[in-house]
Design a protein around this nucleic acid. Structure first.
Length: 967
DNA sequence: TTCGTCACG
DNA sequence: GACGTACGTGACGAAG
């Protein structure tokens, strides 16, 4: 029990002071944009704040915080005005307005503080830091210990007092005097002088131009303190530095007044009133209930032994200290539907003018650091890299751009060349050293309290990984667009910019040219590069502002946060892993294929009676259907003869020799051009491996796609093709493991359409196609005619694709009416499937989209097209999407969990590829036996616990020296 | 750049 | 009954 009466502090006491204002911003940016379910009121920062207070008061970590506090207060800035504005009117003048959805949270956070029954202190004319300085001074004089909960470097000057520590709860970091030396190179006693010299761009403290933290520390080391330094400034060797110190001496003195915290504010709340009071369970739960924070409510209820049922939700107003106007607007927004609010945000983003001439190149490291400090304050940084290649494994970083707020975007060139003189262009010396810039960049990109925003972050993450920088946390505008609008258009930046901002970005070819005359980005003059690169960052920031709020009305937050964003670093690692390919084997195959083709070409010319280009469908058509007069020719929509494999197969079946040879030739041509030749080209000279690129936002259904090269369509169906698969091999001492889901789409179908016979068959481990045939044709599964089974298999696949009699007839080579009869029989035996298909079409017509079992949406706006063909096409796609997409979601979940599961089991398997229902790994030989069950388990359990499937998933996993044998 | 073709799930 | 089809991709060579 604690005392209920206030009393003076003594040496046994521990005062904890929370820097409320700074924390609000960090919580806001570090956390997802949570809103109150019932009315959409933004409460993300409130939630973060409450969780922090609860942890400090009820579950303090003794290692981080020492003994539990006896005195506790949360200190806020009263308003943006303080006595410092009288000293220097521009103080904090450049701070951007807080985001719209943060503003209503300021007053609520004060309510939260009071709900926790702790002192909530602010005072007109003073900043929170001054109050913290004053209370700390008083407590130290009384002999007490003080913990200041903040990450603000301005408070470091207080560490001169004994028994004072600075604790950053978001980073679990405790800073004492040694920590100050480590971070700034000076002891706390010199922090004020250091800040006076270096200035602070966030607070707009001018300092001395050209002097940053590093230089200031060095000068103070040499001269002792600011006044001595200013007095002896003429002795400094560096010209510019000396001049600046003399010219801006007074500015440094003003800065000193600004950065010095006031230790003797005439505080209205005496220190004693911060004595920790007992939690009032009912009062706190009433508030938390009103905020609809269920988890924390439950925790508080348990700890305080209060029943939540008895507690009425408190009425919490958004009444603020900032005046009626804000209150009104906030109230208006609080009452808007999420869709209306999202539209408002989009309109705001679209109304911003984009003007590349305003962007700046940054050459000075001190300036860069100052700009990054702004990002530390705001918690947000839009970021983009410029490189020499679209392939991150071959790209060299040329520079990077970032945007702090709309219109304020910068480009940091690193290795641009200057001039185009005939002697050869050299390094442009205005640029800061790349390692210097990268060190500063690393601190920001790895700062957990700064949200990095990018467009297609997988690329930038991979580029930064080349420089040993791990980017987190991040948002990706491409993925935001994808989850909100798959099927409504592309998600590339140019397209998104036109769609959401009504602005066409500077085309890349305008700065770098195109085709043969294209130059790499390092050859682009810096001013031109700045406009292009900084515009990308600016646009990315605006797109984020427009797109992030779309998640809520599209109910896409969970999909984005569980199926998209976490997959990005996983895919980046897979791409960087690459897969080993046997170059000699490919080259041998290529020769074999070429030889085979040459032989066939001669035979074909002989049969045709003339030389022609076998690879030209047009010329081939003229020979077959024109010159030779073979029957059954069809024209393509452009009027030429169509020569698809199926038509050539038919002709071959009729006994014609030439079509058979053309088919053989085509197969070899395909294997050679697309695989043996292209694949050998794709081997990275540095790694000796092939690195594909997986696209996350390319398909309507949620599947990935692979390109450059496409490793998701490596041949497997023919003998000749499988030879290419054999060229995919494991590193010495390793095996390749292939693990694939068995019949995952049919299993998903059985689940979503809720078909008892199918579910039972899967539960019993039956051959699903045989079982289908047995049901349809009333034949026993035992000893079934393979042709009957094949027909059932085709129907099963047809169902998944949104069956049509025409399509099935084509597939099975039977008549259309016969195919129609099969379908009719199928629907009679499985009425639930017909029901599912009709329901899905109806849903799509009503909503314009369909959903996977995890809530991913695929849009088909043309499902209502008046053109029946187009409409039918969209209907079939809409039927297929939930099945294909749900399967895609399941394997995504498996991929996201795979690395932690392998690490947990202390295994070194590397995930290399995904081929829709299959994952490929490289596994040390000695670990194969231990690894297979881990992989299988993760894949089989992938839908849990979010969703319990009503059918079991089955996985086949095998290890071998090459992909063909493992498959 | 578009088309026809074909590799994969 | 029109319409012209199986669903989802990416890469190649030919031809415009």
């Amino acid at each position: 029990m604690t005392d209920t009466k206030n009393r003076p502090l003594s040496s046994d006491d521990h005062l904890m002071l929370v820097d409320g204002s700074t924390y609000i911003f960090r919580a806001y940016h570090a956390l997802p944009p949570l809103t109150r379910k019932s009315d959409g009121l933004p409460v993300g920062a409130v939630s973060g704040f409450c969780n922090m207070l609860w942890k400090l008061l009820a579950e303090p970590d003794p290692e981080l915080l020492g003994s539990p506090p006896t005195h506790f207060a949360v200190i806020f800035d009263h308003s943006s005005y303080s006595f410092r504005n009288d000293i220097y009117p521009d103080y904090k003048a450049h701070r951007p307005e807080p985001p719209e959805d943060l503003r209503p949270q300021f007053p609520i956070i004060r309510d939260a503080t009071r709900a926790f029954n702790v002192a909530c202190i602010e005072q007109e004319g003073y900043e929170a830091d001054d109050l913290i300085a004053t209370y700390t001074t008083q407590a130290v004089e009384a002999g007490a210990h003080v913990s200041i909960i903040s990450s603000d470097k301005d408070l470091m000057q207080l560490l001169t007092m004994p028994n004072v520590v600075l604790v950053d709860t978001m980073k679990d970091k405790r800073t004492g005097p040694d920590g100050v030396v480590e971070k700034f190179g000076v002891p706390p006693e010199k922090m004020i002088d250091l800040q006076s010299l270096a200035g602070d761009s966030v607070d707009n403290v001018p300092g001395v131009p050209g002097i940053g933290v590093k230089t200031a520390a060095q000068l103070l080391e040499e001269f002792g303190d600011l006044e001595t330094l200013l007095a002896q400034a003429e002795t400094i060797k560096q010209n510019k530095r000396r001049e600046n110190l003399i010219e801006f001496a007074d500015q440094a003195r003003v800065s000193k007044k600004l950065v010095t915290l006031k230790p003797d504010v005439p505080v209205k709340e005496p220190l004693e009133t911060t004595l920790v009071r007992d939690l009032d369970g009912e009062q706190l739960i009433g508030f938390l209930k009103a905020m609809e924070f269920t988890t924390l409510t439950r925790r508080v209820a348990t700890k305080t032994e209060t029943s939540t049922d008895d507690v009425q939700s408190a009425s919490v107003s958004t009444h603020g200290f900032e005046g009626a106007k804000v209150e009104e607007r906030v109230k208006a927004e609080g009452e808007m539907t999420p869709a209306a609010l999202a539209e408002k945000r989009a309109n705001e983003a679209a109304s911003v003018t984009i003007d590349p001439s305003k962007y700046e190149a940054v050459f000075d490291p001190a300036k860069l650091e100052a700009l990054f400090d702004e990002a530390r304050w705001s918690g947000i940084l839009a970021f983009d890299t410029e490189t020499t290649s679209l392939d991150p494994m071959r790209a060299e970083l040329v520079g990077f751009s970032f945007a702090l707020e709309p219109g304020r975007a910068y480009y940091v060139p690193l290795i641009h060349t200057s001039g185009d003189d005939l002697l050869g262009a050299g390094h442009d010396d205005r640029q800061m050293p790349a390692d210097k810039a990268l060190a500063l960049l690393k601190a920001v990109l790895e700062d957990p309290a700064i949200l990095k925003i990018g467009q297609n972050m997988k690329y930038d993450i991979s580029i930064m990984a080349n420089h040993d920088i791990a980017v987190a946390p991040f948002d990706d505008t491409m993925l935001l667009s994808y989850v909100a609008g798959a099927g409504t258009g592309g998600h590339g930046m140019d397209e998104l910019s036109s769609k959401w901002l009504g602005h066409t970005p500077i085309p890349y070819k305008e700065v770098a040219g195109s085709g043969k005359s294209m130059i790499t980005f390092d050859k682009v003059p810096i001013d031109k590069a700045t406009e292009y690169a900084a515009e990308d960052a600016d646009i990315t920031l605006l797109l984020w502002r427009a797109l992030k709020p779309q998640l809520i009305p599209h109910k896409a937050t969970t999909v984005y946060e569980t199926l998209e964003r976490p997959l990005v670093p996983v895919l980046a690692r897979m791409e960087r892993n690459g897969i080993k390919v046997d170059r000699q084997m490919l080259s041998r195959l290529s020769g074999d294929f070429a030889q085979g083709m040459a032989g066939l070409e001669a035979e074909i010319a002989e049969l045709a009676g003339e030389d022609f280009n076998v690879g030209s469908p047009k010329q081939l058509g003229d020979i077959l259907f024109g010159k030779m007069g073979l029957p059954g020719g069809k024209k393509t929509k452009t009027g030429a003869w169509a020569t698809p494999a199926s038509a050539l197969e038919d002709l071959a079946a009729e006994g014609h020799e030439l079509p058979r040879k053309v088919l053989d030739w085509r197969q070899l041509q395909k294997l050679r051009s697309t695989y043996t030749e292209a694949l050998a080209q794709a081997i990275n000279p540095d790694t000796g491996r092939v690195h594909t690129s997986f696209a996350l936002a390319a398909t309507t259904t949620g599947r990935l796609s692979s390109s450059d090269p496409n490793l998701q369509n490596i041949p497997v169906r023919t003998e000749a093709g499988r030879k290419i698969r054999k060229a995919f091999i494991a590193e010495d001492g390793c095996k390749l493991v292939s693990a694939d889901y068995s019949q995952i789409e049919l299993r998903v179908l059985a689940h979503v359409a809720d078909i008892d016979q199918l579910k039972q068959a899967f539960a019993d481990g039956l051959d699903i196609h045989a079982m289908t045939a047995s049901e349809m044709f009333n034949v026993p599964i035992e000893g079934m005619d393979p042709i009957v089974r094949r027909q059932a298999k085709a129907i099963n696949f047809g169902i998944i694709y949104g069956i049509s009699a025409f399509g099935l007839a084509n597939q099975l080579g039977i008549g259309r009416s016969e195919a129609g009869d099969y379908i009719k029989t199928y629907f009679e035996r499985f009425p639930g499937i017909k029901q599912y298909m009709d329901d899905t079409k109806a849903f799509c017509r009503d909503h314009g989209y369909v959903e996977t079992i995890f809530g991913r949406r695929a849009h088909y706006p043309d499902i209502k097209a008046s053109n029946p063909a187009m409409r039918a096409f969209n209907e079939r796609a809409a039927i297929n999407a939930p099945i294909q997409g749900s399967a895609a979601d399941i394997i995504r979940r498996a991929m996201i969990r795979m690395e932690p599961a392998l690490a947990e089991a202390k295994l070194n398997a590397k995930m290399l590829l995904q081929v829709h229902d299959e994952l490929i790994f490289e596994v040390p030989e000695s670990e194969v036996d231990a690894t297979l069950p881990v992989i299988e388990k993760v894949m089989i359990d992938a839908s849990n616990p979010a969703l319990k499937l009503s059918v079991p998933l089955e996985v086949d996993a095998r290890a071998a020296d090459n992909w063909d044998d493992a498959h």
